[in-house]
Lab assay of single mutants.
Amino acid sequence: TETVELHKLKLAELKQECLARGLETKGIKQDLIHRLQAYLEEHAE
Rank of each mutant, 00 (worst) to 15 (best):
31 D>K: 02
17 E>Q: 02
35 R>T: 04
26 K>N: 13
39 Y>N: 07
19 L>Q: 14
44 A>V: 10
39 Y>D: 07
23 L>G: 00
20 A>K: 12
24 E>F: 08
30 Q>W: 05
27 G>W: 00
41 E>S: 10
18 C>S: 00
28 I>F: 07
4 V>M: 14
37 Q>I: 04
40 L>Y: 14
16 Q>A: 11
40 L>V: 10
37 Q>K: 09
37 Q>G: 09
28 I>D: 15
5 E>F: 09
42 E>K: 12
17 E>P: 01
13 E>M: 05
16 Q>W: 06
2 E>W: 09
16 Q>E: 12
8 K>Q: 07
33 I>L: 10
43 H>M: 06
12 A>L: 08
44 A>M: 07
12 A>P: 11
16 Q>I: 06
20 A>W: 04
36 L>S: 03
25 T>W: 06
10 K>F: 01
30 Q>E: 13
4 V>Q: 13
31 D>L: 03
9 L>P: 01
22 G>L: 01
19 L>P: 01
41 E>P: 12
11 L>Y: 14
44 A>E: 14
23 L>F: 00
34 H>A: 14
27 G>K: 00
22 G>R: 04
8 K>Y: 07
29 K>H: 04
2 E>L: 13
23 L>V: 02
15 K>G: 01
27 G>T: 01
37 Q>V: 07
26 K>S: 14
16 Q>L: 09
21 R>D: 03
26 K>A: 14
41 E>W: 08
43 H>T: 10
13 E>S: 06
32 L>A: 01
26 K>I: 09
5 E>T: 09
25 T>L: 04
17 E>R: 05
18 C>M: 03
36 L>R: 02
5 E>I: 15
10 K>W: 00
16 Q>N: 09
15 K>Y: 04
35 R>Q: 04
37 Q>T: 08
5 E>Y: 04
3 T>R: 11
12 A>N: 10
25 T>M: 04
11 L>A: 06
34 H>E: 15
10 K>H: 12
39 Y>P: 07
13 E>I: 07
13 E>G: 03
21 R>I: 01
24 E>S: 13
27 G>L: 00
38 A>P: 07
22 G>A: 03
23 L>T: 00
5 E>K: 08
22 G>W: 00
2 E>T: 13
22 G>E: 03
3 T>E: 13
25 T>D: 14
14 L>T: 01
17 E>L: 05
44 A>D: 15
42 E>P: 09
32 L>V: 04
21 R>F: 05
39 Y>L: 03
36 L>N: 03
39 Y>V: 06
3 T>A: 10
10 K>V: 04
20 A>L: 11
39 Y>K: 10
28 I>T: 14
41 E>N: 09
10 K>S: 12
24 E>R: 05
7 H>V: 05
13 E>P: 00
29 K>A: 08
4 V>L: 14
41 E>A: 12
33 I>D: 04
3 T>G: 11
39 Y>T: 05
14 L>A: 01
19 L>S: 10
20 A>C: 06
43 H>K: 13
2 E>V: 09
8 K>A: 10
16 Q>K: 15
24 E>W: 01
12 A>R: 10
3 T>S: 10
28 I>L: 15
33 I>A: 06
20 A>T: 10
19 L>D: 04
42 E>Y: 05
35 R>E: 05
2 E>D: 14
38 A>T: 13
5 E>C: 11
28 I>E: 15
40 L>F: 12
6 L>Q: 01
44 A>R: 12
4 V>D: 08
4 V>P: 12
